[in-house]
Design a protein around this nucleic acid. Structure first.
Lengths: 375, 375
DNA sequence: GAAACGTGGGGGAGCGCTCTCTGAAATAGA
DNA sequence: TCTATTTCAGAGAGCGCTCCCCCACGTTTC
């Protein structure tokens, strides 16, 4: 092994079986008592330098060091240099908790992902895109993202307590479905909250959404290609995204006097495959399908192939989102480009505006049809 | 619009163009001054109740309230009830910053994702799996995940400062490549750090890895299938994962007296396609390819189809990771199942052990060949 | 019945920082 | 030369919480 590790640490390779892996863990709150007790003074000795220490070394007051560290300009250059030297020599870094306590600000925001359990295990790239984009945008202004998973009802209480505890300056809410109590609960906390996509419940919460005409554009495209029996695989109808994309589909078909053929999925590949099989059973002659996201489109393509249909010759397929994978399906998937990264960045800006001056200028990012060979 | 929003907030839909979206943002640290100034006393009035307030209402001391809130058992049931009533009436939630300051513990850990920029925009589900699994595991012990992106050199300083600032109790490092200074820098900070996968540089840091014999198993499988010219698309060679999987490939081929045919990718689909084309140009007669991850395998399949090769008839393809998408390729992809979720959970447990008592029992999760129809 | 012990609650220090207030020194003005 | 004004550093009061220490009050022991 290559660990050079210390006294009490044991290193080495151990194969763990699933039983061991699943053992319950002690509550976080319990440890620190034990740890403090065990480490006793040692902890004190190796404590990081404080403002006080830097001040002593530089021969100035705490206030002055604070001013220097925070970049205030009312400090004479000479003194500034002396302080900076002391800071570097001691390796001083301000203590975040102390700063948060007095400023009442944490410079971090929560990203609350409120997703149903079945989606947790599907690997929808939407989530990683949002997380990443929001993270990048926040880091540009020196703020951090705290990820809060709110999949289960129990975790809701945890999330609420965390937010109410003043750990974050604001909240970004992603993917809430109709019955989700979180949007309402969070707004009651008097903490700035914004939503990724229009909230499914009526609540006074600024949001950034994407232009939902995409669903309509997809169907018009299929119509223009001469398709006559166009089915759709809708997303969960308790989510706004699911509703809106379905509405777009319906509107266009109604206008062109065609029948709607609808199956409902839950945004996972598996559900797309299941829905496609059902659609095929309902109407064997369908010649096109519009899926409310790419993952379901991929599942649908899989089911179509298994049923012996050629794409796009027998059945045309259009997805939604334009995830990277859409470029690599066989054939490449026609889809609606939905700029999740931009939308996430816009959400961050919305929240920052709220934090800075209470302003909330929502924005809508626009979608665009990307025609590939599946249609 | 459905915003019911307050006085100074402006709601409404505004289309933003990319130029506006990209405007630079004020530094986080600058606002709070403005905000404090602007809000003045109002902020004070609506401050959340403190321990003091609860104590006053319950007619006991701060200490007693603290004991009750923290679940200490040395409080008489009567008093406990009185305090709890006051807590509920006031809606008291302990202030996190104050608690962190005095306990020197934050109950949150950082997940540092140190990934090269080109991978940021590829949607590798590995990252979301790790993030999600680690998050779930930590929430079980009431701790939070703070996501720190360390893609660029500039962001390294930010990450270091953040960690040094005591904002987190420990650090989980993901996906570091050879030249990454972060592992070394972080260990110097005297903060518990664990790594997802063996660090690429020799450093005293506990890690959880996956059993890298997978590469070998994949190649043996292809050999058993009667394939004679087996190529590989390796991952970045400055990452341990890339090295190890390549080593497995090489070892098996050497033992069976066959020639290695190697191209290098960077774990993205695009790079897999590029590498496949190159491989095909180098050796048009190859009859199998082992890609170091599924994303590259998907890219390779795409390139093979474009080159008119049938899979698996002409060329067999094997991937690595067994991401969800591998089940939905055409044909479904044979791959090495790599339990990222389990590995992430094990990493969390490793870190928690370190935090609790300095113990670090590393573990290796095992991989397994999953045969589908691409080979 | 006095001394010893145990038990539950209050007092108060202090975690590390920011920021207002104050005062000293430097500069300007008369 | 003396006062008015500005500039810049220090003193000190908290931010909201935890936890050590101690005291008051029972309860036991000899």
């Amino acid at each position: 092994m290559r660990f050079l590790g210390g006294e009490r640490r044991r290193f080495g390779i151990v194969h763990v079986d699933s039983a061991t892996q699943r053992r319950p863990l002690k509550d976080g709150a319990l440890w620190y008592r034990e740890v403090i007790k065990r480490n006793g003074l040692r902890e004190n000795q190796m404590r990081r330098p404080t403002l006080e220490a830097v001040a002593a070394r530089a021969g100035v007051s705490r206030s002055t060091v604070s001013r220097v560290v925070n970049g205030q300009t009312t400090v004479t250059p000479d003194i500034r240099d002396v302080v900076m030297r002391a800071v570097n020599e001691l390796g001083y870094v301000p203590n975040g908790a102390a700063r948060n306590l007095v400023t009442q600000r944490t410079n971090s925001v929560a990203l609350v992902v409120s997703e149903p359990p079945n989606r947790v295990f599907s690997d929808d790239p939407m989530f990683s895109t949002v997380i990443r984009s929001a993270g990048i945008e926040l880091e540009a202004v020196n703020m951090q993202v705290v990820l809060l998973l709110a999949g289960s009802p129990e975790s809701h209480a945890r999330v609420e307590t965390y937010v109410a505890g003043g750990h974050v300056d604001g909240v970004m809410l992603v993917s809430s479905h109709g019955a989700d109590p979180l949007p309402v609960a969070l707004t009651r906390l008097r903490v700035p909250v914004v939503s990724y996509g229009r909230p499914a419940v009526p609540v006074a919460m600024p949001y950034v959404d994407s232009d939902n005409v995409g669903g309509a554009a997809a169907v018009r495209h299929l119509l223009a290609r001469g398709r006559r029996r166009i089915a759709t695989i809708a997303g969960p109808l308790d989510m706004i995204g699911g509703q809106d994309r379905l509405a777009g589909y319906r509107d266009v078909l109604r206008d062109s006097d065609r029948r709607s053929i609808i199956a409902v999925g839950d945004f996972t590949r598996e559900s797309g495959a299941v829905a496609m099989r059902q659609l095929l059973a309902d109407d064997p002659d369908l010649d096109a399908v519009f899926a409310a996201n790419d993952l379901m489109a991929i599942g649908a393509m899989h089911a179509l192939r298994q049923a012996g249909r050629r794409i796009p010759d027998d059945v045309a397929v259009v997805g939604y989102d334009d995830i990277e994978a859409a470029r690599y399906t066989d054939p490449p998937l026609t889809t609606i480009h939905n700029p999740h990264a931009e939308q996430a960045a816009a959400m961050v800006r919305l929240l920052l505006g709220l934090l800075a001056d209470g302003s909330a200028d929502p924005s809508i990012v626009s979608t665009e049809l990307v025609v590939r060979t599946s249609s």
